[in-house]
Amino acid sequence: MREETRKALRRLFSNASGVLGVVLLGLFVIVALFAPLLAPPKPGRDPYFMPVVTWSADPLPPSREHPFGVAGKRDIFYGVVWGTRTAFRIGILVTLASTAIGLFVGSLAGYFGRILDEILMRVTDVFMAIPFLVAAMVLTTVLGTGLDKVMIALIVFSWMYPARLIRGNILQVKEEQFILAAKSLGVSDTLIILRHVLPNAIFPVLIQASMRMGSLVITAAALSFLGLGAPQGYADWGALLNYARNWMLGGYGATFKYWYMIAFPGGAMVLFVLAWNLLGDALRDAFDPRLRW
């Protein structure tokens, strides 16, 4: 490991908020891994669908049987636990796929430059011109409901960010002496990108990915909240919050007694996003101390 990297990692773990982020994420990983033990699914049923536990549409407050209460006829605790898996799945798959596409496009644009760069950058302009949530909404309505559709929509509209980052990095690295040296030795372009450029850009990409994770999970949940993402009854924090919406609008005086409908799924979401943001922040501080906060 390079000296710089080691130093940066030490800075990361001496940063209280970075440690808090890692700990929070660790807790979520544990919940996701042990979901079948924490909230055992009914045998023979898809565990990602929350089982119906009552016949009345009225929400039920937390009890021994349903520790987080019941919303939309479904157990909130079950939804929060299995929703953790959903959140990780969306976050990680979308980030991986969009980063891979972004790396490819960004490398092409940055390395070959000129007309190709101009065209690709104008294409990213177009993809970035429509607000992320609106664009994802349009695509999911066309593709239909389902988690896979949501993920496709999110990937289609988030590859531009890593692409731009990589391109910028490549443009910067390209001018550096060792690249010119490699080029003058006749090393092929592909090899130069793989050997020299990408390793130098890996940390900025990681930091950005970690920061983006939060907004991806929020957008996916927002789609479910609007009833566009996960199908009816799917274990998803956004879908759980959707159940709460009508009860909150139902006139004033009595809505506070439904607090658990927002507090548990909402709390899980906030902590999840917070964890990624803290981690991303701490990573950035560690690798780029100038921007520290």
Binding site: I218, A222, M248, Y252, A254, T255, Y258, I262, M269, V273
Partner: peptide, 17 residues
């Protein structure tokens, strides 16, 4: 880190409900 719909629901619950 607060998704707008989570915070919005809290606002609705407290300041309206």
């Amino acid at each position: 880190s607060f998704p707008d719909f989570v915070f919005g629901l809290f606002v609705l619950m407290i300041f309206y409900g």
